[in-house]
Nucleic acid binder design. Sequence first.
DNA 1: TAAATAACTAAACGCTCGGTTAGTTATTGA
DNA 2: TCAATAACTAACCGAGCGTTTAGTTATTTA
Lengths: 187, 187
Amino acid sequence: MARKKEYREEEVIEKAMNLFWRNGYETTSMQMLEKEMGINKFSIYSSFGSKNGVFLESIKCYKQKLNKLINKLKASEKGVLGIKEYFYDFIEFARETEFGKGCLVTNTANEIGPDADEKIKGALTNFTNEVKQVFINILKEDTSKDDKIVEEQADFFLISMFGLSSATRVFSKTQLENYIENIFLNK
Amino acid sequence: MARKKEYREEEVIEKAMNLFWRNGYETTSMQMLEKEMGINKFSIYSSFGSKNGVFLESIKCYKQKLNKLINKLKASEKGVLGIKEYFYDFIEFARETEFGKGCLVTNTANEIGPDADEKIKGALTNFTNEVKQVFINILKEDTSKDDKIVEEQADFFLISMFGLSSATRVFSKTQLENYIENIFLNK
DNA sequence: TAAATAACTAAACGCTCGGTTAGTTATTGA
DNA sequence: TCAATAACTAACCGAGCGTTTAGTTATTTA
C-alpha cells in the first residue's frame, strides 16, 4: 500500500460548506477553499474532482446539519406548532454574530441563473421536495383537511422558509421572531 | 465640440439591468454586458466607470421599473388589500416564461457575502427601507393600531416579499398565488 | 476648412480563475 | 530493506476576468 491521507474528507467538506454558505458559489474561489479546508488543490481535486464536486458534497453536508432540525420536527407531536418551533430553530441555525447567512439551498437557488449546472439544480429541487414532504406529513396528521389544502399549506410554509432564509441576511433577530409569530397567527 | 454618443445611457443601462436581474452580479461578465448593451467596453467604462458602477445604475433603473407598481400601491385606497394587489402585480413583474427571476434587490441580498461592496449593501438597505415605509404609511391609514404593531406588520409584509421573490425562481404561478392568498387569510 | 475634441474600435494589460502535472515524501507489504 | 504505491508540494496551464490604452473616426466651431 501507500501513504495515508492527512485529512478526513468529512471534516474538510464541512469547512468548504461553511465557506459556500457564507459567500455563495461564485464568490468562493479554489484559493479560498484551499485555505479554509487546509489542504492543497491536488488533494481537493483527488477527493472531489472539481469545484462543482466540492459544492455538491457541501450540499450533502448541509443536508446532514439541517437534518438535526428536521428530525426534531419529524419527532415532534405538536403538529403545526412543531413547524413553528422548527422555524425558531432555523433562525438560530442560519444566524451568525450580526447578520445571518441564510439557508445554503435558498442562497444557491437565488444565486444561480437559468444556465446553471443541472446537478446543482437537481440537488436544490430534491432538497425542497423533501422538506415539503415533511410538512405535508405533519399537516396530514394534524388536520382533517383534504390533500389539496394540505399541499397548499405545505407550499405556504415552504415559501415562508425561503423568506425567512433571505431575511436572516438582512433583518434583526427580533424582526425574524416577529415574522414567525405573524405567520402562525391564524394557524 | 466633438462626436456624439451613439447610444443613450438610460437605454443601455436597462439592458444591463435585465442581465444582472437574470444572472446575478458575479455570473454577469463584462463580455456579456458588452454584447447585451450593444456597446464597447470603452463606452461602458466612460459612462459608468466600472462593473460596480454599471450595477449601481442598474439598481436605480430597477427601482424606477418597480416604482410603477409601488406608485399604484401608494395611490390605492384599499389599505391592506392594496398590498395584496401589489403582491399579485409583483409576481407578474418577477416571472418569465417558465421560472421567474425574482427581485433584483432580493437576489443581490442573497448573493453577496459579508465582504461585499459597501455601496451595494447601502443601496439594498435604502431600497428595503423605502418599501417598508410605504407599507407603514398604508397600514397607518388603514388601521387604528399603534406604531409598534404597524411596524411589525410592515416587517411581516417585507419579509413575505423576500419569500415571494425567491419563490418566483422555483415555484409555479399557482403556488405563488396560493401563497399570497394564505398570507392575507387573516389580514 | 482645419484644429480641437469626444466617441469610437480593438488590442493588450495584469491578474485570478478553475484545473493539471512533474517531482518528492511517506507508508506499505513482500 | 526495498520496490510499489498513494498523498503530498508547488509550479504551471490556458482561459477569462475587469480594466486600460493607443490609435482612428466623426462632429463641432472658429
